[in-house]
Simulated scan of single mutants.
Amino acid sequence: MTNAQLDFGRRVYHLGPRSRPLLLIDARSAILCVLLWVATAALGIFAIFSGDAAVTLPEALAALSGHGTEFSTMIVLEWRAPRILLAVILGASLAISGAIFQTLTANPLGSPDVIGFQTGSFTGALIVMLLFQGGALDTMLGALAGGVVTAFVVFLLASQRGAARGVRLIIVGIGVSAILASLNTWLLLTAEVEDAIMAGLWGAGNLSGVTWPTVWLVAASSAVFLTGAILLARPMKLTQIGIPFATALGQNVQRVQAVAIIVGVGLTALATATVGPISFIALAAPQIARRLVRTDGLALGPSAAVGAFLLLLADVIAQRISPDSPLPVGIVTVSIGGLYFLWLLLREGKKP
């Protein structure tokens, strides 16, 4: 076929003239994304009508269509729906950020929560909350500033001959993260008890109290960074093959790395500033996605789908494991992460 080629094996849907492919879609990745998004939608529907406040499925659907009672409308549209959408958006954002940094460092441990960016965001938020008694907006801005400054310091210290190398970046990031974690502990210990408790709850990652203005703001902001991530996919694949190879093809590796850092840090800082640090999603979602699609590439689409499903699942569990005192979602993601890495360790231990 000259204008369209379909192959339902490993690859591809090839659209456009054969000499200049317009779109290349991995069949396995496409099927996986569809299944994961269907599962996420089903989980979202379950989260809409289930929970401590009793709302039946017909009542929830009526509220979503604008014909619900005052009670069901408040539960569904004001409390649950924005929380579900925010979990999906932030899960996808964190997963894509992790995929970018793992590709950038050529290391599966090179996620933003390992190399210090989330810790830096928490530091910025703590300084605003505990030292300046800032409000919600001030805390978000402080978290954004903390993440950006931490990323700048880490990449400045890790850069060598104009480029940040993978292992060096991870080592520097872990060191900076350890220093900032000590600073965070000191800030919490020296603060007033009530302020420290509130800051600690925020630092555990919490989706409670989400409103529609927050959802729209996060959706618009993340859309900008996600567009940048999509545009970075091809240049980063060349960089993944090797920096000398990409340079030989005329690619400005330093510029690609700089833009990738901005996009990755932006997605992580946005999530952290909105709901606090949420561990595991950025680290494990890209790894799970690559295992499912059996590729070593960037896998942005599958990573986003896995991240959205995992964070929504963690939030559903966090709200229902103890309805009288729901857990912060960050505690559940860490627990799921521990189980995942335990399984991974046992699986690797069985290999000869």
Rank of each mutant, 00 (worst) to 15 (best):
A178F: 00
I171T: 04
L169D: 05
S182A: 13
S159F: 13
V176F: 02
S159K: 08
V167G: 12
A151L: 10
L187K: 09
L156F: 15
G175M: 03
V153L: 10
V172T: 13
A163D: 10
N184W: 01
I174F: 03
A178W: 01
F155E: 03
N184Q: 08
V172H: 01
R168N: 11
T185R: 07
L156K: 13
V153H: 10
A158F: 06
R165T: 15
I171M: 07
I174S: 04
A178L: 05
R161I: 11
V153I: 12
G175T: 04
V167S: 14
V176H: 03
F152Y: 14
W186I: 12
R165C: 11
A181T: 08
G166I: 07
I170K: 00
L187T: 10
G173N: 01
G162Q: 07
A181V: 06
A163P: 00
S177P: 07
I171Y: 04
L188H: 03
L188I: 09
G162D: 13
V167Q: 11
A151E: 09
I174L: 08
F155A: 00
L169W: 06
L180A: 11
A151Y: 09
A178T: 05
V167W: 05
V154K: 04
T185G: 09
A163G: 07
G173Y: 01
A181G: 14
L183Q: 07
L183W: 01
L180G: 09
G173S: 01
G166C: 10
F155S: 03
R165I: 14
G162M: 05
A163K: 00
R165N: 14
V154N: 05
L180K: 07
L157H: 09
N184H: 04
I179W: 00
L180I: 15
L157R: 09
R165L: 14
V172I: 12
S177V: 08
R168A: 12
V176L: 08
T185Q: 12
A178S: 11
G175R: 02
L156S: 14
A181M: 07
L187S: 04
R161G: 15
I179L: 12
T185I: 10
L156I: 13
V167P: 05
W186V: 13
R165Y: 14
